[in-house]
Measured scan of single mutants.
Amino acid sequence: TIDEIIKALEQAVKDNKPIQVGNYTVTSADEAEKLAKKLKKEY
């Protein structure tokens, strides 16, 4: 679900690790936030 994706992003940001979500690779908190907002609009 979208919530699980967002939790995974938040965890990756805390661990400061890049995370791959679908076609996106998120490497920073800023990118994670942008991706989360984008995904919320889509779903």
Rank of each mutant, 00 (worst) to 15 (best):
L35F: 04
L35S: 00
T1W: 15
E33K: 12
T25R: 09
V13E: 02
K17Y: 15
L9E: 02
N16D: 06
N23T: 09
T1C: 15
D3N: 09
I19E: 01
I5P: 02
S28T: 13
E42I: 15
K7V: 07
Y24R: 05
A29N: 03
K40G: 05
L35T: 00
K41N: 12
L35G: 00
V13W: 11
L35A: 01
K38V: 06
I5T: 01
K37G: 05
K41G: 10
G22E: 05
E4Q: 11
S28Y: 04
I5D: 00
D15P: 01
I19W: 06
E42W: 15
A29V: 08
Y43S: 08
A12F: 15
A8I: 12
A36C: 13
Q11Y: 06
K40N: 03
E33S: 10
A8Q: 10
T25P: 03
Q11F: 06
V13H: 05
P18H: 05
T1G: 08
A32R: 00
T27A: 12
K40A: 10
K14V: 10
N23G: 15
N16I: 03
I2T: 03
K14T: 07
N16V: 03
E33F: 13
D3Q: 13
K34P: 01
K37C: 15
I6A: 01
V26K: 01
K41D: 11
A12G: 05
E42F: 14
D3S: 11
K14L: 12
K34A: 15
I19V: 13
Y24I: 10
D30S: 10
K14H: 09
K37T: 12
D15R: 04
K34L: 13
E4C: 15
I2K: 02
T27H: 12
A8L: 13
D3A: 13
S28R: 01
Y43F: 11
D15E: 11
A32P: 00
E33G: 07
N23K: 11
Y24G: 01
V26C: 15
K7Y: 11
L9F: 02
V21P: 01
T27C: 15
A29F: 05
K38Y: 15
P18M: 07
K17E: 04
Y24M: 08
A29L: 06
L39G: 00
E33A: 14
A36S: 06
L39A: 00
K17R: 12
K40P: 02
T1L: 10
K34E: 13
K17P: 02
E4Y: 11
Q20W: 06
Q20I: 11
K7Q: 09
V21H: 02
Y24A: 04
I5C: 07
Q20A: 08
K40E: 04
T27R: 07
E33Y: 12
K7E: 07
E31C: 10
K37H: 11
K41M: 13
D15H: 07
V13T: 05
V26Q: 02
I2Y: 11
K38W: 15
S28V: 03
V13I: 14
K34H: 09
A36T: 05
L9H: 00
I2N: 03
N16W: 13
N16L: 06
I5E: 02
T1Q: 08
I2G: 02
A36W: 14
G22I: 04
T25H: 12
A32G: 03
S28P: 01
A29P: 05
I19F: 11
P18W: 10
E10V: 07
L9P: 00
V26H: 01
K14C: 11
Q20E: 08
L39C: 07
V26D: 01
Y43N: 10
I6S: 01
A8T: 06
I6K: 01
N23M: 11
I6D: 00
E33L: 15
E33I: 14
Q20K: 13
A32D: 00
I19Q: 03
Y24P: 00
G22P: 02
I6V: 05
E33M: 14
A32E: 02
D30C: 12
E31A: 04
D3L: 15
A36M: 15
I19C: 11
I5M: 08
E42D: 09
A36Q: 05
V26E: 02
G22A: 05
Q20M: 10
E31Y: 03
K38M: 13
Q20D: 05
P18G: 12
E42N: 09
Q11P: 01
A8F: 06
N23I: 12
E10S: 05
Y24T: 04
Q20R: 14
K41Q: 13
V13K: 06
T27F: 14
I19N: 01
I6Y: 02
L35Y: 04
A32H: 00
K17W: 15
D15C: 12
I19L: 09
K38F: 14
Y24V: 07
A8N: 04
K34M: 13
Y43C: 13
P18V: 07
L9S: 00
A36G: 02
Q11H: 04
N23C: 15
K41F: 12
I2V: 08
V13L: 07
A29R: 06
I6R: 01
Q20S: 12
K34R: 12
P18T: 06
K14W: 12
K34Q: 13
I6C: 07
N23A: 11
D30G: 08
I2L: 11
L9G: 02
V13G: 05
T27Y: 15
T25V: 13
K37E: 12
Q11D: 06
K17S: 06
K14D: 04
N16Y: 05
E4D: 12
D15L: 11
A12R: 02
E10M: 15
P18K: 05
E31F: 04
N23H: 08
L9I: 07
Y43R: 12
K38E: 11
T25G: 05
E4N: 08
E10P: 00
D30A: 14
I6P: 01
G22H: 07
V26A: 08
V26L: 06
N23Y: 05
K14Y: 10
Q11N: 07
G22Y: 10
K40I: 13
K38S: 06
A36H: 04
L35V: 03
L35Q: 00
I2P: 04
D3I: 12
K7C: 08
I19A: 05
A8G: 04
E4T: 07
K40S: 09
K41H: 12
S28E: 03
A12T: 04
D3W: 15
V13A: 13
G22F: 12
K38G: 03
E33N: 09
E31H: 03
E31V: 04
A29G: 09
D3M: 14
D15I: 05
L39D: 00
K41I: 12
Y24L: 08
T25Q: 11
E33H: 09
K40D: 01
E10G: 04
I5F: 04
V21G: 03
L39Q: 00
Y24N: 03
D30E: 15
V21L: 12
K14Q: 08
K41L: 14
E33T: 08
A36Y: 15
E42S: 09
V21C: 13
T1E: 10
V13F: 09
E42A: 11
L9C: 01
E4W: 14
A12H: 04
L39P: 01
K7G: 05
E31N: 00
E31P: 00
K41A: 14
D30Y: 13
A8D: 03
A29Q: 06
A32W: 04
L35I: 05
D3T: 09
L9M: 04
E31L: 03
T1P: 07
E42C: 15
K37L: 14
A36V: 15
E31G: 02
K41W: 13
L39N: 01
V26M: 03
Q11K: 09
K14S: 07
D15K: 04
T1A: 09
N23D: 12
K17Q: 08
Y43A: 09
A32Y: 03
Q11M: 10
G22N: 06
I19R: 04
K40C: 14
I6Q: 02
D3P: 09
K41P: 02
L35N: 00
K38T: 07
E33D: 10
V26W: 07
T27K: 09
S28D: 10
D15Q: 08
T27I: 10
D3F: 15
D15A: 10
I5K: 01
K17H: 08
I2F: 12
E4G: 05
D30N: 07
N16K: 08
N16G: 15
V13Y: 09
L39F: 06
N16A: 07
I5Y: 04
Y43W: 12
N16R: 08
L35C: 14
E42H: 10
V13N: 03
A29D: 04
L39V: 01
L39E: 00
N23Q: 13
K38C: 15
I2S: 03
A29W: 07
E4K: 07
Y43D: 03
K37D: 11
D30T: 08
I5L: 10
A29M: 07
T25F: 15
P18D: 03
I6G: 00
E4M: 12
T27D: 11
N16F: 15
I5R: 02
A12L: 08
I5A: 02
A12W: 15
E33R: 14
Y43Q: 11
D30L: 10
K17V: 12
A12K: 02
T27P: 05
L35E: 01
L39W: 03
K37W: 06
K17T: 10
D3H: 11
